[in-house]
Each structure stands twice: as structure tokens, then as C-alpha cells.
Design a protein around this nucleic acid. Structure first.
Lengths: 145, 145
DNA sequence: TATATTTAAGACAAATTTATCCGAAATAAG
DNA sequence: CTTATTTCGGATAAATTTGTCTTAAATATA
């Protein structure tokens, strides 16, 4: 559904969000370890999220990554997905046609529209705050123990 | 959402279905042309669909591909997608965890389950017959004119 | 100010997906 | 039976995604 890059990015964001709520900055090493993702690749993905102003980075000793805790409620899954994968998952044509819309639909257009709209709504209504919360409560996992 | 392979495969199936209803067999060349897909790649994909008994192939002169017209109502989008991409789109974990279920969910598990279930239902309820029909009626396109 | 620590950036490499190519096998038709 | 046509199957190639490595830049702290 999402790219590997996006999957890593979402998991990383959730971990960073939680540590931020606890008042910590985290290093790429930690993020990679806790999300079971490759370190260097995680670093690249975090750069992307920083550029999109979804997370904050600090260089040097005691540096690392964190999220503005006040923004946790306003950062959505849609923001994360869009920053990394763009909008093709919820806006693109199901059959890959470059032009596909109501007046010039591919054969699956209207069938897919319903699902894609629901996906988009879900992404828009899911905040980083709530994802982080389920993880904090031990009700979800970011990797297998 | 789906792989390119799958997109080509679905478009090909729709075109073949329509020609089959008209009583024709079609050659890979035709399929590729009418779906704007690469010929050799289309050939490979059709092989897969033949192996899964979703379409029928005939070698030699006057050969080509067709669909059993009596099966058009029972062949679903789910069949086509499963044959090519497997079940990961509607069964896999949204964050790529190998193990992810109700009792050991990733943070997006329950949010995604709703969407994925709707996707699966849609795929299951959409038949090749109806997709072919909208195309036959000129109400949908397989490529840009 | 020197040093150690940490992210940033860009080049490079591996893996996977998307395709191509070619010879073999089947078969219809003369 | 020969020939032309068409799919089959496997090897190969190109493109994209996924991932690594190395050096530079920033900065906290002594």
C-alpha cells in the first residue's frame, strides 16, 4: 500500500513523538533500533520529514530529533504519507492512467473512488498524537519483540 | 496501489473480455496496443493469467487469447489482483510488519482494517463482466485517445 | 577554542520491479 | 508435410526503489 520508505517514516514518527512527549530527543540510531529499520535509510527519511517541517532536528552533542508536542494533534497520517509518497495513493488512478476523472474515467474509477476517499478521510482524521498514544499504552507495537 | 504488472493485467483482461463477448480472440499485439502497454511485458502477464485459469490461450495461426464468456460474471477483480499481486494489498500490515493482527497490532492496524476490508469487499464484488460492460458502452477508457 | 557528537548531503550499491529478447513448442491452413 | 503464425519459457536488461557510505556542517561542552 505504502512504500517501504513511508512505512519506516511513519514508524519513526510515532517513536519520536512518544519520546518527545517524555521530553527526550532521539538519535537516528535509537529510532532505527526501535523501529527495526536500517539506520542510514532512516536518516534519509528523517531528513525528508524535517524538510517538510513535520519533525525537528538538532545537530551536535545532545542533538537528535523530536516533534513539537503542541503539534501532535495537528500532524496527521496524511501529512506523513504526503511528505514521503505524495498523493498518488489516494488521488491516483487505480489502473495507472495519467488522466482519469469523472468525465474520463478508467473502468474501475468509480469503484475505486469510494475506497480511496475513505482511505484519504482516514489518513486525514488520524493524528500522530493518537498513534503515539496507543503505542505509549502498550496497545500497539512498532516491531516484534 | 497496485503494481504496474497488475494494472496492465486488469486492463488487458477487460479488453480481452470485451473482444470475447464479440466472439473474437485477440493477439498480444492487439492487447498491448489497446491498453497502451508494452507488448513483451503484456505477454508475460497474460501467461500468468492463463496459468491461473482466468483467461484462455491458443497457440498458432488464428490463435490468441480469450475469456470464457460464461465466466465473466464470476471472475472478480479480486481474482485478477490476487493472481498477479497476491493478497498483501488487502491483507498485509499497513506498516509492513510481518506479524500484525488484532492481538498484536501495529499502531495503524485498526484504522487500516476498515479501509482494507472495504477494498477487499469492493474487489470481490466487482466482476470482469461489469468492467467490460462500462468499457463496451463507451463509459470508460483503457488508454487516452 | 578544541573536541566530540550529531545531522545533512550527495555519491554509490544492492535489490526489486518493470520490462525486453530469443529460441522452442504448438497448431492452423495450404 | 511444410510453412507461417502464435504463445511459452527462460535469460537478459533497464529502471526504480531501497539502502549504504563518506565527507561536510553544525553545535554543545569542557
Amino acid at each position: 500500500m505504502f512504500s517501504k520508505t513511508c512505512e519506516h517514516g511513519i514508524k519513526a514518527s510515532i517513536y519520536i513523538a512518544n519520546q518527545s512527549k517524555l521530553g527526550f530527543r532521539v538519535k537516528v540510531q535509537d529510532v532505527a533500533k526501535e523501529t527495526n529499520s536500517p539506520v542510514a535509510f532512516t536518516a534519509k527519511i528523517l531528513q525528508t520529514l524535517v524538510k517538510h517541517a513535520l519533525i525537528i532536528s538538532h545537530k551536535g552533542p545532545q542533538g537528535g530529533f523530536n516533534v513539537d508536542v503542541d503539534k501532535l494533534e495537528s500532524i496527521t497520517l496524511l501529512d506523513l504519507v504526503f511528505a514521503i509518497d505524495g498523493d498518488s495513493i489516494y488521488n491516483g488512478c487505480g489502473l495507472g492512467l495519467h488522466v482519469c476523472n469523472e468525465s474520463n474515467p478508467c473502468p474501475v474509477h468509480f469503484k475505486f473512488k469510494v475506497v480511496r476517499d475513505e482511505l484519504k478521510t482516514m489518513l486525514l482524521n488520524t493524528t500522530l498524537a493518537e498513534l503515539a498514544q496507543t503505542f505509549a499504552e502498550g496497545k500497539s507495537i512498532l516491531k516484534y519483540a
